[in-house]
Design a binder for these strands. Structure first.
Length: 257
DNA sequence: ATGGTCGGCAACCGA
């Protein structure tokens, strides 16, 4: 069982990359965030023509999430339970008996802003969401762009970046609190070294070449699934480049049984 | 270094 997550920053402009990756990697599940397409503009025909099922929810210009799988996608739910539902930030489905919760957590903008408080609150609401549907003994994968780098080893400059909306004590506590409901970080389970990133801010000069990265995308699993996880790693496109890259797929592999 | 660059979408917003 191969499960992956990818922040597309527009699924339409990354469709070629996604279809090539699906064809090559043949994952069981690919979750995408920041599809940036309204439902009427979502490239569903291209994806189904490639042999995949896909459920999605988007909005104009921003956000947007989807779940892609060659398998049957069942029990789809969109949005959080209370208002604002943020329908284009969370989509849930069941694939081969595994519950998949794909989230695009609000970025937060500035520490002092209401948007950051909203981000902290979002993690609390997500914990309730898990609590109302599952138990820690259920088979649940929670993955996506969580917009949090929890540890010093998850950013290129822990001193300079401390206090950023994606790297501070409060936001880490908020993420851990939701994780403590019953999730294990599958990537950290298999990788203890620093400097393993999933995101490079292209606004920073030469961020990719200089490897100014962040690990803000995650794949979490409840205990029963974490026990079956054999590996987790970041797949970088294009592969001709050294370590950092433009596009990163975070992958976790689970034993079938 | 308080900018930088993308993408959506049609003036700026968001990351």
């Amino acid at each position: 069982m191969k499960i992956a997550t990818f922040n597309a920053n527009s699924i339409r402009s990354r469709l070629g990359i996604i279809l090539a990756w699906l064809d090559e990697q043949k994952p069981d599940i690919l979750c995408v965030q920041e599809t940036k397409a309204q439902d009427k503009d979502f490239p569903i025909n291209e994806i189904t023509s490639a042999g995949f099922n896909c459920v999605f929810k988007g909005q104009k210009s921003y956000n947007g999430v989807c779940i892609i799988s060659p398998h049957k996608i069942e029990n789809v739910e969109i949005g959080l339970d209370d208002e604002p539902k943020d329908e284009s930030r969370i989509i849930k489905a069941c694939v081969n008996g595994i519950n998949i919760v794909n989230t695009y957590v609000p970025q937060g903008r500035e520490m002092e802003s209401e948007h950051f408080q909203y981000k902290l609150e979002w993690f609390k609401r997500l914990k309730k969401y898990f609590d109302s549907r599952f138990t820690p003994e259920s088979s649940v994968i929670w993955l996506g762009d969580l917009n949090v780098a929890p540890e010093d080893i998850d950013v290129h400059d822990p001193v300079g970046l401390r206090g950023h909306v994606c790297f501070n004590e409060q936001v880490t506590a908020a993420m851990y609190d939701t994780m403590n409901w019953g999730f294990t970080d599958l990537f950290r389970l298999h990788n203890k070294d620093a400097g393993q990133y999933t995101f490079w801010d292209y606004r920073a000069f030469g961020s990719i070449k200089r490897n100014l990265g962040w690990r803000i995308d995650h794949i979490m699993a409840t205990k029963p699934l974490a026990q079956k996880c054999t590996s987790s790693y970041v797949d970088k496109i294009p592969r001709t480049l050294p370590q950092p890259s433009d596009h990163t797929f975070l992958i976790a592999e689970l034993r079938k049984e």
